[in-house]
Simulated scan of single mutants.
Amino acid sequence: MRFTLLLSGCLWLVLLSIDGHADEDVKANITRGLQSLLPDMKITAITPSPVQNIYQVMMGPDIVYMTGDGRYLLKGDLLDLQDRRNLSEEGRSVARLDILKNIPERDLIEFAPEKTEHAIYVFTDVDCSYCQRLHRDVPELNKNGVAVRYLAFPRAGIDSKAYRDMVAVWCAGDRHQALTDAKNGKPVAYRQCDNPVKQQYQIGQSLGIRGTPAIFLENGTELPGYMSPEKLVSLIRG
């Protein structure tokens, strides 16, 4: 479980609300029980699950289940075998979408078609070969009405060359061209400015990203890495 949620203060203001569907005693019991184990953890929602006296507890995009008295904690996915649904993944998708939708548009590098029908969020690294391959697919995705919204995720961390390269991209006068150049192995003049690269890297960590490209659909669903534009468009359109 990823208990370290490194979201910025503005995002926490959006997320920090405990759902009113669980009664106050239950919320108090669960909060007390969980914080006795993880005192710094921030609970973002407590809602009843379909199982009697079992509650879904969300901490950003992380989910656990607890009994109403706050004594027992269950870790794992809750599956509805009758309807063939992963209820936990549905909850995580909603939480991921809340996070992604509250990232300011000015902090994204978006490659959009003339008429956007769908959009994907892509955490990218300029040194990642599959990220470079996906970037070459952007014109085909745009042709199919799909906007690509890039966020920075230098896999080697914030002390790496990739991090400095991505700062240079986000600080460039023409960020679209700078990102394309960087992904094609061309040097981008280093600049410093007030930039979101570190914050986006931390958001990616909170979402559990381990590799790139990390692709998220408009409903918060996470896709398993690179795929061909044909397959990606098919998944987007459902």
Rank of each mutant, 00 (worst) to 15 (best):
E89Y: 04
N29V: 06
N53L: 03
R85E: 13
I30M: 10
S88F: 01
V94S: 04
Q82K: 15
E89D: 10
G33N: 08
E24K: 06
E89T: 11
S49K: 04
Q35T: 13
R71K: 15
D77Q: 08
I46S: 02
A28I: 07
L108H: 09
I54R: 02
Q52H: 07
D23R: 05
L74I: 15
Q56V: 14
V51F: 03
R32Q: 14
D77F: 09
G33F: 08
L81H: 11
G76K: 02
G33H: 09
M59W: 10
T31R: 13
M59R: 11
Y72I: 14
D83L: 14
A28W: 05
I54C: 02
V51N: 04
G76Y: 00
G68W: 08
F111S: 00
E90N: 06
D107K: 06
L79M: 15
D40K: 14
R85L: 14
V51P: 01
Y55M: 05
T31Q: 13
D62T: 15
V64K: 07
V57G: 12
E89G: 02
Y72P: 12
D69W: 11
I109K: 04
E89S: 09
S88C: 06
T44N: 01
D80F: 10
R71E: 14
F111V: 01
D40S: 13
N53I: 01
M66E: 06
T47W: 03
K42S: 06
L37W: 10
V51H: 00
N102T: 03
Q52K: 08
E105A: 15
G60Q: 12
Q82D: 15
L38D: 07
L79F: 15
L87P: 10
P104R: 01
I46E: 01
Q56S: 12
P104L: 05
P61F: 03
M59N: 12
E90W: 05
M66P: 09
P61L: 12
A45I: 00
I30Q: 08
Q52C: 04
V64A: 05
I103N: 01
G33Q: 10
R85Q: 14
A45W: 00
R85N: 11
D25R: 07
I43D: 00
R92M: 11
R92D: 03
I103Y: 04
M66L: 13
Q82A: 10
I109N: 02
D25Y: 04
I103T: 03
T31L: 13
S88Y: 04
V64L: 14
S88G: 05
L38K: 09
V64G: 06
E90Q: 13
I109L: 00
R71M: 14
